[in-house]
Amino acid sequence: MRRWRVPIFEFDTAIARAIARRAAPEWERPLRLATLLADERLVLGLSVGAWLLTRPQSRHRRRAASHILLSALVTSALPHALKNVLAQERPDRLELGRKRHGVPKSGKALDSFPSGHAVHMGALAAAISRAWPERAGWVWTGGALISLTRIALLAHWASDVLAGAALGAGVECLLNSLTEARSDVPRQ
Protein backbone atom coordinates (compact mmCIF):
# COMPACT_ATOMS: atom_id res chain seq x y z
CA MET A 1 0.00 0.00 0.00
CA ARG A 2 1.26 3.44 -0.92
CA ARG A 3 1.68 5.86 1.97
CA TRP A 4 0.82 9.56 1.83
CA ARG A 5 3.85 11.80 2.39
CA VAL A 6 3.50 14.30 5.23
CA PRO A 7 5.37 17.55 4.50
CA ILE A 8 8.17 18.84 6.71
CA PHE A 9 7.73 22.51 7.57
CA GLU A 10 10.49 25.14 7.58
CA PHE A 11 10.09 25.72 11.32
CA ASP A 12 10.52 21.96 11.88
CA THR A 13 13.79 21.95 9.96
CA ALA A 14 15.08 25.06 11.74
CA ILE A 15 14.37 23.56 15.18
CA ALA A 16 15.88 20.17 14.28
CA ARG A 17 19.04 21.77 12.85
CA ALA A 18 19.53 23.87 15.98
CA ILE A 19 19.17 20.75 18.15
CA ALA A 20 21.50 18.71 15.91
CA ARG A 21 24.21 21.39 16.18
CA ARG A 22 24.02 21.28 19.99
CA ALA A 23 23.55 17.51 20.46
CA ALA A 24 25.86 16.06 23.09
CA PRO A 25 26.11 12.57 24.60
CA GLU A 26 25.68 13.86 28.17
CA TRP A 27 22.17 15.09 27.32
CA GLU A 28 21.03 12.03 25.44
CA ARG A 29 20.85 9.56 28.34
CA PRO A 30 18.58 11.68 30.59
CA LEU A 31 16.40 12.52 27.59
CA ARG A 32 16.07 8.84 26.66
CA LEU A 33 15.06 8.02 30.23
CA ALA A 34 12.48 10.83 30.31
CA THR A 35 10.99 9.82 26.96
CA LEU A 36 10.35 6.31 28.32
CA LEU A 37 7.63 7.81 30.54
CA ALA A 38 5.44 8.08 27.43
CA ASP A 39 6.30 4.67 25.99
CA GLU A 40 3.08 2.88 25.09
CA ARG A 41 3.98 -0.28 27.04
CA LEU A 42 4.61 1.72 30.21
CA VAL A 43 1.49 3.85 29.69
CA LEU A 44 -0.65 0.76 29.14
CA GLY A 45 0.89 -1.08 32.08
CA LEU A 46 0.35 1.83 34.46
CA SER A 47 -3.18 2.35 33.16
CA VAL A 48 -4.07 -1.29 33.75
CA GLY A 49 -2.45 -1.13 37.19
CA ALA A 50 -4.41 2.00 38.11
CA TRP A 51 -7.61 0.40 36.83
CA LEU A 52 -7.04 -2.70 38.98
CA LEU A 53 -6.13 -0.67 42.07
CA THR A 54 -9.26 1.50 41.82
CA ARG A 55 -11.76 -1.38 41.70
CA PRO A 56 -12.45 -1.23 45.48
CA GLN A 57 -12.33 2.59 45.57
CA SER A 58 -14.90 5.35 45.01
CA ARG A 59 -17.11 5.49 41.92
CA HIS A 60 -15.28 8.66 40.75
CA ARG A 61 -11.88 6.93 40.88
CA ARG A 62 -13.17 3.77 39.18
CA ARG A 63 -14.71 5.80 36.34
CA ALA A 64 -11.60 7.96 35.99
CA ALA A 65 -9.32 4.90 35.86
CA SER A 66 -11.61 3.20 33.34
CA HIS A 67 -11.59 6.30 31.14
CA ILE A 68 -7.82 6.62 31.39
CA LEU A 69 -7.39 2.95 30.44
CA LEU A 70 -9.76 3.31 27.48
CA SER A 71 -7.88 6.44 26.34
CA ALA A 72 -4.55 4.60 26.67
CA LEU A 73 -5.80 1.61 24.69
CA VAL A 74 -7.18 3.70 21.83
CA THR A 75 -4.17 6.01 21.67
CA SER A 76 -1.84 3.01 21.61
CA ALA A 77 -3.47 1.69 18.46
CA LEU A 78 -4.10 4.99 16.66
CA PRO A 79 -0.50 6.08 15.89
CA HIS A 80 0.30 2.63 14.49
CA ALA A 81 -2.74 2.78 12.21
CA LEU A 82 -1.84 6.29 11.03
CA LYS A 83 1.78 5.36 10.39
CA ASN A 84 0.56 2.64 8.03
CA VAL A 85 -0.97 5.29 5.74
CA LEU A 86 1.28 8.30 6.42
CA ALA A 87 5.01 8.59 5.76
CA GLN A 88 7.42 11.21 7.01
CA GLU A 89 11.16 10.81 7.48
CA ARG A 90 12.46 11.28 11.00
CA PRO A 91 14.70 14.26 11.74
CA ASP A 92 17.55 12.10 13.06
CA ARG A 93 17.83 10.55 9.57
CA LEU A 94 17.85 13.91 7.78
CA GLU A 95 19.68 16.26 10.14
CA LEU A 96 22.50 14.13 11.52
CA GLY A 97 25.49 12.91 9.57
CA ARG A 98 27.66 9.97 10.54
CA LYS A 99 28.53 11.64 13.85
CA ARG A 100 25.36 11.32 15.89
CA HIS A 101 26.80 12.92 19.06
CA GLY A 102 25.00 10.37 21.23
CA VAL A 103 21.61 10.83 19.53
CA PRO A 104 20.03 7.36 19.25
CA LYS A 105 18.46 6.11 16.04
CA SER A 106 14.73 6.16 16.63
CA GLY A 107 12.07 3.84 15.22
CA LYS A 108 11.49 3.22 11.56
CA ALA A 109 12.85 5.90 9.24
CA LEU A 110 9.49 6.90 7.72
CA ASP A 111 7.37 6.69 10.90
CA SER A 112 7.78 10.23 12.18
CA PHE A 113 4.17 11.46 11.95
CA PRO A 114 2.48 11.61 14.41
CA SER A 115 4.48 11.23 17.59
CA GLY A 116 2.92 8.30 19.42
CA HIS A 117 4.48 9.48 22.68
CA ALA A 118 2.77 12.86 22.27
CA VAL A 119 -0.55 11.19 21.39
CA HIS A 120 -0.36 9.26 24.69
CA MET A 121 0.61 12.36 26.68
CA GLY A 122 -2.18 14.46 25.12
CA ALA A 123 -4.80 11.84 25.91
CA LEU A 124 -3.55 11.14 29.42
CA ALA A 125 -3.16 14.81 30.31
CA ALA A 126 -6.70 15.49 29.10
CA ALA A 127 -8.17 12.48 30.93
CA ILE A 128 -6.35 13.13 34.21
CA SER A 129 -7.18 16.86 34.05
CA ARG A 130 -10.83 16.01 33.49
CA ALA A 131 -10.91 13.74 36.56
CA TRP A 132 -8.78 15.99 38.79
CA PRO A 133 -8.99 19.58 37.44
CA GLU A 134 -6.97 20.94 40.38
CA ARG A 135 -3.95 19.06 39.00
CA ALA A 136 -4.40 20.13 35.36
CA GLY A 137 -1.51 22.60 35.29
CA TRP A 138 0.98 20.07 36.60
CA VAL A 139 -0.34 17.27 34.41
CA TRP A 140 -0.22 19.30 31.19
CA THR A 141 3.23 20.68 32.04
CA GLY A 142 4.59 17.19 32.71
CA GLY A 143 2.99 15.81 29.53
CA ALA A 144 4.43 18.67 27.47
CA LEU A 145 7.94 18.22 28.89
CA ILE A 146 7.88 14.48 28.25
CA SER A 147 6.58 15.07 24.71
CA LEU A 148 9.30 17.64 24.05
CA THR A 149 11.94 14.97 24.66
CA ARG A 150 10.89 13.49 21.31
CA ILE A 151 11.96 16.72 19.58
CA ALA A 152 15.18 16.99 21.63
CA LEU A 153 16.13 13.41 20.68
CA LEU A 154 15.42 14.21 17.01
CA ALA A 155 12.93 11.34 16.93
CA HIS A 156 10.18 13.69 15.74
CA TRP A 157 9.68 17.08 14.19
CA ALA A 158 8.02 19.74 16.34
CA SER A 159 4.87 19.52 14.19
CA ASP A 160 4.70 15.73 14.82
CA VAL A 161 4.62 16.39 18.55
CA LEU A 162 2.09 19.23 18.33
CA ALA A 163 -0.19 17.19 16.08
CA GLY A 164 0.21 14.11 18.27
CA ALA A 165 -0.70 15.98 21.47
CA ALA A 166 -3.73 17.58 19.80
CA LEU A 167 -4.81 14.22 18.38
CA GLY A 168 -4.48 12.55 21.79
CA ALA A 169 -6.47 15.29 23.53
CA GLY A 170 -9.10 15.13 20.78
CA VAL A 171 -9.43 11.36 21.07
CA GLU A 172 -9.83 11.66 24.84
CA CYS A 173 -12.54 14.30 24.38
CA LEU A 174 -14.38 12.12 21.86
CA LEU A 175 -14.13 9.06 24.12
CA ASN A 176 -15.39 11.10 27.05
CA SER A 177 -18.36 12.33 25.00
CA LEU A 178 -19.20 8.79 23.94
CA THR A 179 -18.95 7.32 27.43
CA GLU A 180 -20.88 10.22 28.98
CA ALA A 181 -23.65 9.85 26.39
CA ARG A 182 -23.73 6.11 27.04
CA SER A 183 -23.97 6.61 30.82
CA ASP A 184 -26.97 8.95 30.31
CA VAL A 185 -28.98 6.17 28.63
CA PRO A 186 -31.41 4.66 31.16
CA ARG A 187 -30.71 1.00 31.93
CA GLN A 188 -33.56 -1.48 31.89
Rank of each mutant, 00 (worst) to 15 (best):
R22D: 09
A127N: 01
R59S: 12
A50D: 01
W27P: 00
R41V: 11
L82M: 11
A77S: 10
R55K: 11
R63V: 13
L42D: 02
L96S: 06
H117M: 03
L53A: 15
G102L: 09
S58L: 14
E40C: 03
L94I: 12
P114L: 00
K105R: 15
T13H: 07
A24M: 03
S76H: 08
G107S: 13
S106K: 09
N84Y: 08
R59A: 15
R29W: 07
L33K: 11
N84A: 15
G49S: 10
A34N: 00
S47E: 01
P91D: 02
R63N: 13
V85H: 12
P30L: 10
E28C: 13
A14R: 14
R55A: 09
E89M: 14
R62M: 07
S66W: 04
V43K: 02
K105Y: 11
G97I: 12
R17L: 13
A20R: 09
T13A: 10
R61G: 06
A50N: 02
H60A: 14
A72H: 00
L33P: 00
L46D: 05
A87T: 03
V103E: 01
G102D: 06
R29F: 06
A87V: 00
A77I: 14
G102V: 12
R62A: 06
A24N: 08
A16Q: 04
A34L: 15
F113K: 03
R100Y: 04
H60Y: 02
S129D: 05
R17E: 10
Q57F: 13
A20T: 07
N84M: 14
R90I: 10
L46V: 14
V119S: 02
S106E: 11
L73S: 04
R62L: 06
S71Q: 07
E95W: 09
A14M: 11
L44F: 01
G122T: 11
P114K: 00
P79C: 08
G116F: 02
I68Q: 06
A24H: 14
V48T: 10
L46W: 05
L33T: 13
G49L: 15
W51V: 04
S58A: 15
A18D: 12
V119Q: 03
R29E: 09
P104Y: 01
W27Q: 05
H67A: 11
M121T: 12
T13E: 12
S47N: 02
P56E: 09
V119D: 01
A65V: 10
G107V: 14
L33Q: 12
D39M: 01
R98G: 09
G116T: 05
I68W: 02
P104L: 05
L78K: 14
S115G: 07
S129N: 06
R130W: 14
A50R: 05
L31M: 13
Q57S: 14
A87Q: 07
P91R: 07
E89C: 13
P25F: 05
A24W: 04
L82I: 07
R59W: 09
R61C: 13
L31D: 02
E40V: 09
A127L: 03
S112G: 01
A123F: 03
P91Y: 01
I68M: 12
H67Y: 05
D39W: 00
E26W: 13
A118T: 02
R90C: 08
L96D: 02
